[in-house]
Amino acid sequence: MPMSVKTFAQVDEAARALAASRSARYLGGGTLIMRAVNYGDQSFDTIIRTTDPRLKQIAQQGDMLVIGAGITMSEVIANRETAFLAPVARTVGGPAIRNMATVGGNLFAASPYGDFTAALLALDARVVPAGGQPISLDEFLNARERNAGLVIVSVQIPRLRDVNAFRYVKVSRVKPKGIAVMSIAAVLPMQAGRLANARVAYGAMGPRPLRALAVERALEGRSLDEAGIAQALAVATEGVDPPSDPIASDWYRRQIAPVHLKRLLLGQRR
């Protein structure tokens, strides 16, 4: 099918063009969109992109770290402000994919993709659409299909008081590069030896990255040791809806979730 490509200097113009057309798709790094084009996807005939520098910034703004939606995984790895996210970005695809895959595109990537978004979810990130107010990532993901008509400018991450409170693991069968069996991201703030307001998110455990709310509740006020996390492990798979795909079955993903959650929480090496 003939395709047309429209490039805009301003993200707001791109957003208007996208909103005005049912058969247009926004192009980030293109790792998923160009796949669809190559496979003759008939659901769109227009590609919309922008060269707006706002999508390419990484900046500390007040209490927020702002990462432009057009920032690639390689750029996350290379930038000092986002150094704590480098271990996450490194798990996305191989080197060439990381030079292309953007933060914005990852927000829309279907399971089992979305490792970076799982980390953003644990970090309580907000999504900033062109011409709109920031939305919490939880809310954004719950209505992701509807949000497909928006152009995302950036994500905002509240400043972490303690960078060491952030943990992440991606479980895959192939090293060093492999699609997720699951990924787990957690922010584990401690107050006087007790967990307070922990956030835990899973990738590849549902149609989109999701919060492990039961785990979070079970961790509240507990200590980070075998006894303290026992209840959290018992509810590790509450509310999940894992896919069965060529990487792993629903059953397998459920079986391994508590094992990897335990290692992550206790900081055990794999």
């Binding site: 293109g30 160009m34 796949r35 992109r49 060439a96 994919i97 030079n99």
Partner: peptide, 27 residues
């Protein structure tokens, strides 16, 4: 493969590896 999985289409753009099958040419 045309889907980014095999890497045989790898080229360098400004010195960095990219998958040419997934790169919109005009970029």
């Amino acid at each position: 493969c045309g889907q980014g999985t095999c890497g045989t289409c790898t080229v360098l753009v400004n010195g960095e590896p990219r998958l040419s099958c997934l790169t919109l040419a005009e970029t």
